[in-house]
Design a protein around this nucleic acid. Structure first.
Lengths: 229, 229
DNA sequence: TAGTGGTCTAGACCACCCC
DNA sequence: GGGTGGTCTAGACCACTAA
């Protein structure tokens, strides 16, 4: 069989693990490696590019390829729809709208996403349940200047995230994970106690520089976000 | 200029944003796209592969390429050495060993990572400071059966993570993020109050199926883990 | 079983950047 | 300035899988 870029990746990783190429060490050039592995340079190139992508190697033109001195491994999380997350776990999903109001954007939100003074937003609070147990409280603001059609959506039967994903494309998104103490309000919804540690996700999305929406997601006790490297 | 795979990516993304190719829609085959863009199929292929990697498209042989119906965008976090994380933020880094003991692995740890009964582990507690402010408390167990040379390391001047990264390669790792309420012990180290919400990372690594180490990292108040994509 | 993506090749030109 | 990686091409064969 011809040597695959996967073979090369595995081989390079092995040499790093066996300290043949310790952290900081320089690797041979692509042409040399291609000869050694008996394949085309493009094949070596792909293997190397993926290892860079995974945070193992670093490359610069002229300077060559080296093993990263301090390996920043890249963790990846696939953020899916909560409906599917729950279904995949084998539980029944239920959604409920808790609050819906159209208001002038509060100051903190305007500062966060650059909404002009007096700009209107649709503020929604929703609950997501797994097997009738509170799973996530969603506190969301939708910018009505950029998404006017949200004004006529009642969101009684479909969550705003699911609706947005289907109706509104976005170009940039920011996600932040943190831990917060549950306020009385959050605790009530999640069926916990005030002060309980709550895993919190903040998510903001934009389309061509225009803010679309900002959301805070509060997860019920015991939630863990996991990944493998 | 010849068309680049980046041009193709941008163009495809635009068509998705303009709902020319709505979620679930099928795209033309690679050959057809290559003709349209006036480039080689390999160029189209690379563009498409990267869009799959980013969670925008899905492809299957014979079935073709389509826009993901429920877009699971992939968030990426680069996990770097805490020293560099702090330095990059422009603060001075300081490390301190708090506790060091060699003990028989406790039951919960043995269950978690399959250490035989009576197996010894090195248990370490360390503090990481940014500008003399508590930044992270590290609670770590190192499996002495797989990493015997850790037994003679005092870890007074170098953190266990940094030492491990330099000395011990690993093949698999798991990371989990969660929120926990600070115990009195954790709160004391982080200069917070008991019960405060603490962003917590659990990390376990293996080399060829043998457990190397397990760690719990408690971050000080206000810590956020962020990404952009 | 036929169509689609997955991969490899051999060669080429180019852009960047360290020396 | 020259060496290294970055990318593109035109062609080929292969692997998977939906129809």
């Amino acid at each position: 069989m011809r040597t695959s870029y996967l073979d090369i990746k595995a081989d390079v990783l092995n040499r790093i693990r066996q300290n043949i190429w310790p952290p900081g060490a320089g690797l041979p050039g692509e042409i040399e490696l291609a000869e050694e592995f008996g394949c085309a340079r493009a094949t070596v190139n792909r293997a190397m590019r993926e290892l860079v992508d995974e945070g193992i190697l670093e490359r610069r033109r002229k300077a060559g390829t080296r093993v990263k001195a301090s390996p920043t491994r890249n963790a990846r999380f696939s953020i899916s729809l909560i409906r599917e997350e729950i279904k995949k776990a084998g539980a029944e999903y239920r959604y409920a709208l808790v609050e819906r109001e159209i208001i002038a954007a509060p100051g903190w939100l305007r500062a966060l996403v650059k909404i002009p003074k007096g700009g209107e937003v649709l503020h929604l609070k929703c609950m997501h349940f797994a097997a009738n147990t509170p799973y996530q409280l969603e506190d969301r603001w939708i910018n009505l200047a950029t998404i006017p059609k949200a004004r006529t959506q009642d969101f009684e039967d479909i969550g705003p995230n699911e609706w947005l994903v289907r109706e509104v494309p976005f170009s940039e998104a920011e996600i932040a994970f943190s831990a917060t103490n549950a306020t009385q309000d959050v605790a009530d919804f999640l069926d916990q106690s005030e002060g309980d540690a709550v895993f919190t996700v903040e998510r903001t999305t934009w389309l061509n520089g225009e803010n679309i929406t900002h959301a805070r997601l509060y997860f019920a006790r015991g939630y863990k976000m996991t990944t493998a490297l």
